[in-house]
Design a protein around this nucleic acid. Structure first.
Lengths: 125, 125, 125, 125
DNA sequence: GTGGTCTAGACCACT
DNA sequence: GTGGTCTAGACCACC
């Protein structure tokens, strides 16, 4: 369910964090469900427990996970997930549009290219 | 023409590289034009010449710049720039759309959010 | 009468301790009254008897509870409770006011903020 | 300027974090000023560099500090500091008032005790 | 068994 | 020299 890509330039703790974050947002991990323990997941991925610990701490900070000392980490109740998903998508869009403009693409070109992307993706469904 | 943001998390050589890359793609720097020398640019930005050298090397690797030993760095001829710009933008779009779908956003939601982004960006102009 | 919040970061034994302490100080549990037995309370809250035992020990240390071996735990006689409550509150206040001054807040600001706090709390009643 | 109290139950990284946070909020450390390097501070306090690192990361997350890789940590520009100070004070007040009510103190008593505290503190000036 | 903290020591990227 | 990441191994509190 969780993989570490040693080719990926981003730090391992961040890969693990992002992966679990996605699993929670897609509800592959449901509210109240227990995450694998720090140690067991570390063993499974053959990495250091501290590295997993760090990923779990990030998830806790974002209130996606809550910790019960001595028992484990659990998926938190979070009704803002749909909002978060939209916000995340919007931010990324704005970023690439801004960069495209900086590259000298006109608003019209951008609009047209976006339209094409959406259509293509719909055709694939 | 080139600025370094010390608050930016990305390394300085990459900031310089990206900035010049943009200048070339927007044709603010035209084919055959000479780039500032490694030393003079380093002085101007008060950073280490090694850092500039590294940025120039990246540009050379991408064939956006060619070097004439003893004379300097020059903007290369590259007729594929407009195509590159579009292709790059399209690829990024497809990537974030695909990820959004994986997150469980519907095609309709995505379409709507994209429309909003474009509008907002136009309003900022 | 006693609840355990698994989301609360503080250890369970402390939650139980604080809760019973409050019940005694508010005289919801009166002098001489018997506390539930370690085992029965553990069963009721579905937690380990050791955890309850630890909470009771803290209460005993503070002389809020006394133990009769083989019979159970009882609320102690303690005529200083009202004084304790005021003293505790006053000490805390002084502490945060002193810290606020250290942060550079003026006496006037502090007075005003305190007034607001009191009002808001009264509105909630 | 920074001290670690081995008696204090709170983790070392948090003590360091809180201490520097206070220094910034009181402007003992001013905007743009450089913090001691991770390694040098670790040496000075005879603790592990990782522990300092962690404290600095917290400060960065709160945007009180920004990092320039390869150069060091610097106090960030943050115009929200006065607001933060008030908010922090208000939260603490609310907390102790709420707890006092839970203990059975009446609103009148609380008001009166607060008034006394403020007066005493003013007398000390 | 669980998570939380800390140390010691290493390697990397950046300046 | 700087910060950032990771490992290995330890100890503690809690359940």
């Amino acid at each position: 369910m969780i993989l570490v890509d040693s080719q990926d330039a981003s730090p391992i703790y961040e890969q693990v964090y992002r992966r679990i974050r996605t699993l929670i947002m897609t509800e592959a991990l449901k509210e109240g469900e227990q995450l694998p323990s720090v140690r067991s997941l570390a063993m499974e991925l053959s990495i250091n427990p501290n590295t997993i610990q760090r990923a779990y701490s990030l998830l806790e900070q974002e209130k996606l996970v809550y910790v019960v000392k001595g028992r484990g980490n659990f998926v938190a109740h979070n009704e803002e997930i749909p909002t978060m998903k939209r916000k995340q998508f919007t931010e990324r869009c704005q970023k690439i549009i801004r960069e495209a403009k900086q590259m000298g693409l006109t608003s019209e070109e951008i609009k047209e290219l976006l339209r094409q992307c959406v259509e293509e993706e719909n055709d694939r469904d």
